[in-house]
Amino acid sequence: MLHKHIDGCVAPPFCRILCFYTAIGRMMSRLPDFRPPTHEEMRALWRAHLPGSDVHRLLLEIVHLRQVLVEIEGLRQAIDRAWKEEFDGQLVGLEVLRCRLQEERVRLGILGR
Results as ranks from 00 to 15, higher is better:
residue 27 M to C: 11
residue 38 T to N: 05
residue 74 G to S: 08
residue 48 A to V: 03
residue 61 E to V: 01
residue 81 R to W: 12
residue 20 F to H: 14
residue 1 M to N: 11
residue 18 L to R: 05
residue 25 G to Q: 13
residue 3 H to D: 09
residue 29 S to E: 11
residue 45 L to P: 00
residue 96 V to E: 03
residue 12 P to M: 14
residue 112 G to V: 02
residue 55 V to L: 09
residue 67 Q to P: 00
residue 45 L to N: 01
residue 77 Q to A: 11
residue 21 Y to D: 05
residue 62 I to T: 09
residue 77 Q to F: 03
residue 107 R to S: 02
residue 104 E to T: 05
residue 66 R to T: 06
residue 81 R to V: 15
residue 19 C to A: 12
residue 48 A to Q: 08
residue 26 R to L: 12
residue 26 R to W: 10
residue 27 M to Y: 12
residue 72 I to V: 15
residue 88 D to A: 15
residue 49 H to L: 03
residue 96 V to L: 15
residue 54 D to F: 02
residue 112 G to K: 11
residue 75 L to G: 05
residue 86 E to P: 00
residue 18 L to V: 07
residue 60 L to G: 05
residue 42 M to D: 05
residue 83 W to V: 15
residue 80 D to A: 12
residue 2 L to M: 13
residue 72 I to T: 10
residue 63 V to D: 10
residue 61 E to T: 06
residue 15 C to V: 12
residue 40 E to G: 00
residue 54 D to A: 13
residue 94 L to I: 10
residue 94 L to W: 05
residue 104 E to D: 05
residue 11 A to C: 06
residue 72 I to R: 06
residue 45 L to V: 02
residue 85 E to Y: 07
residue 109 G to N: 04
residue 89 G to V: 12
residue 64 H to S: 08
residue 2 L to Q: 10
residue 28 M to P: 00
residue 84 K to S: 13
residue 77 Q to G: 01
residue 82 A to C: 04
residue 53 S to C: 06
residue 19 C to Y: 08
residue 61 E to Y: 02
residue 56 H to S: 07
residue 87 F to M: 14
residue 20 F to P: 00
residue 29 S to D: 09
residue 4 K to P: 00
residue 47 R to L: 13
residue 12 P to H: 14
residue 2 L to P: 02
residue 50 L to E: 15
residue 1 M to T: 08
residue 10 V to K: 05
residue 15 C to I: 13
residue 40 E to R: 07
residue 14 F to P: 00
residue 70 V to L: 14
residue 3 H to Q: 11
residue 77 Q to V: 14
residue 84 K to F: 15
residue 93 G to K: 01
residue 54 D to E: 13
residue 2 L to C: 01
residue 35 R to S: 10
residue 60 L to F: 04
residue 91 L to M: 13
residue 68 V to Q: 12
residue 63 V to S: 04
residue 54 D to M: 06
residue 111 L to N: 02
residue 89 G to S: 14
residue 38 T to L: 09
residue 53 S to V: 10
residue 3 H to I: 15
residue 38 T to H: 04
residue 93 G to M: 09
residue 98 R to M: 01
residue 40 E to Y: 02
residue 90 Q to E: 15
residue 105 R to L: 04
residue 69 L to T: 05
residue 99 C to K: 01
residue 76 R to K: 15
residue 31 L to H: 13
residue 102 Q to C: 03
residue 11 A to T: 07
residue 57 R to M: 10
residue 99 C to G: 09
residue 56 H to P: 00
residue 60 L to S: 05
residue 26 R to C: 09
residue 54 D to I: 07
residue 23 A to Q: 11
residue 73 E to Y: 04
residue 88 D to T: 14
residue 18 L to N: 06
residue 71 E to K: 08
residue 109 G to M: 04
residue 73 E to S: 06
residue 93 G to F: 04
residue 108 L to R: 02
residue 99 C to L: 03
residue 105 R to H: 01
residue 103 E to S: 04
residue 31 L to F: 11
residue 12 P to I: 12
residue 5 H to S: 14
residue 71 E to H: 07
